[in-house]
Design a protein around this nucleic acid. Sequence first.
DNA 1: TTGTATGCGTTATCAA
DNA 2: TTGATAACGCATACAA
Lengths: 369, 369
Amino acid sequence: MPKTPTVYDVADRAGVSIATVSRVLRRPDDVRESTRDLVLRAVRELGYVPSGAARGLAARQTGVLGLCFPDVDGIDDVADLPALSRTGRRVEVVVDHGQVAASRWSNLYIGEVMRGAELEAWRTGLAVMIAVARGARRDDVVADLAGRVDGLAVLSATVPDDVLEHVERRIPVVIMAGPRHGDRHDHISVDNAAGMQALTRHLLVDHGARDLAFVGGPATSPDDADRFAGFRAALGEAGLPAPDDVAWRGDFTRSTARELARRMLDARDRGVPLPGALVCSNDQTALGMLDVLSGAGVHVPGDVLLTGFDGIDAGQVSSPRLTTVRQPMVELGRAAVARLRERMADPGRPPSSESLPVTVILRESCGCH
Amino acid sequence: MPKTPTVYDVADRAGVSIATVSRVLRRPDDVRESTRDLVLRAVRELGYVPSGAARGLAARQTGVLGLCFPDVDGIDDVADLPALSRTGRRVEVVVDHGQVAASRWSNLYIGEVMRGAELEAWRTGLAVMIAVARGARRDDVVADLAGRVDGLAVLSATVPDDVLEHVERRIPVVIMAGPRHGDRHDHISVDNAAGMQALTRHLLVDHGARDLAFVGGPATSPDDADRFAGFRAALGEAGLPAPDDVAWRGDFTRSTARELARRMLDARDRGVPLPGALVCSNDQTALGMLDVLSGAGVHVPGDVLLTGFDGIDAGQVSSPRLTTVRQPMVELGRAAVARLRERMADPGRPPSSESLPVTVILRESCGCH
DNA sequence: TTGTATGCGTTATCAA
DNA sequence: TTGATAACGCATACAA
């Protein structure tokens, strides 16, 4: 492999100075057309690709934005990583009785946020670098990322405060989702509470639902807390008593939701009536419950109303289709990057917090139609 | 904002040379513990984060891998980009009669591939940068990415051959999915044909299906072509006549599949019987057809067998649940990065092509259970 | 319109 | 074990 060509090589071959080569690539209008052609031809012939590192160093900015997410696979150590199978078998056949694990909620969510961020970055000529804060050296992963980019968008709760503080001395940081954490950094969130409140209100007012049960996610999830708050607000607003705590708590996964549903059915068999409506804190939870309830002959929405939250694709193909609240995930990514750019343009700007509107999507599981 | 600190600042404060600072960060064991502590404390106090650009330049490698994907949103121009809405409305309510567009197949697919790539990169201490080849200056986007990374994994057909050739003179490139394109670069694919053949064979042998119809994707899709080939192979193997062309051609989207299903029903009303089995080239197509067929009172799998391809999440919650072939998307990303590393370690290595095994997942839509 | 010269913040080589 | 110093490849101010 021959040495990779640099500006010097291009300049030599084109018979110009390296400054001209640089100009041709960065500000083509500042150079005469004939010389430009000369340079571009040399670039082509040599297979020259400018070094991003050198450029970033000289220009004092990289033109790259960083995206930082939590680990959704629960991989803390390299040893946890399943080996890359390279067996000779071409095709395997398995029978799925429901045991195939659903892809986790967060994958979808993160994928969409990334898509939005990349889109907005592309729009303004910036590149995007991603990192998952995982493993024992997760803080180093974040610092490393911070050293390579001009700004950082971090999903809430994926980076410890002290690391964030360290990083913020170098580049602007914007937190995506979750509750606002102090007033040091910029923050873009999604209006979980208002969305859940509107949805619950719909159940209460339009369907006359009573005896609503909230099926929550992890107690540590701020999103879950916000949604529960919205649920309570709607009850209060209707003059109904609101529970202090989440009665049924899952973990946002379909499988745990199945387990909860089974326990609900057990309780019913012991004389405890099923709730009139199950207000689930996310779609996966709702789909898991739907699966078990339908299997047990409980009709949704005939016997019990059911709703989710997130707006995942699967909610469109379930029977009945799932009423839910769509989170603007792509917009979350876009807004984060937009905010980052504003901040990069004007570092003196005081940090602010913005909340993105959500959309209640009415389908059949709430009793509509 | 005070000037961001550099090695010099840290060295000053710690009373050592910049070489020692660098050593503390890169090879901590080569330095006395007391000096190390001194330096680390200075790092902490100053909020020092090493510049990735400078490091990349000096070390002659960036420690970053590039991932390049096609645009799935069909955004060719900045003007196509919907504005970031920042209206004051907190919650919107819409009724979904099925008009809400499904998220595209490729988003999911790409998200999973990225996840796998990031995972494998993390395992070996590398960072990941992503780019979508979109817009008028898409070639520049790719070249720009190539200048910032040590290796590039590109999804098949997203980058023109000449650009790839140019880039390959600087860094190793591996193509993910699709057919192998010449023998210049490394290639990791998925065994579409074998998967579809096994699935079709299952329909033929285990369910005695006859009069199978293949519902394809875009004529330009190599994946679709491979799957059709697998379909034909299974028919041939069973001594049945195989069609030369795809009779029903969609575009991998649910909405187009709905349209196809309607045309199928129209044909039936004109006396053309429905096929005994619909072998769809992807899951979204199968789900679209299922939707319309069920709505028209056609029972799946009672009246017609139905299968998909991809293994998307939604196939687990449809009624009936969808029999399909799971593509190892995460593994595709992982294998691509693994291959890239092998190549970086040994540039002289001849390019090779590897095909990943798929999994047939039997659920109810094929008639099982 | 083009060229010269300097600096960007690291790593790595060599000496001490 | 530590320090001085030379690359690394480019952008840009200034000069021509």
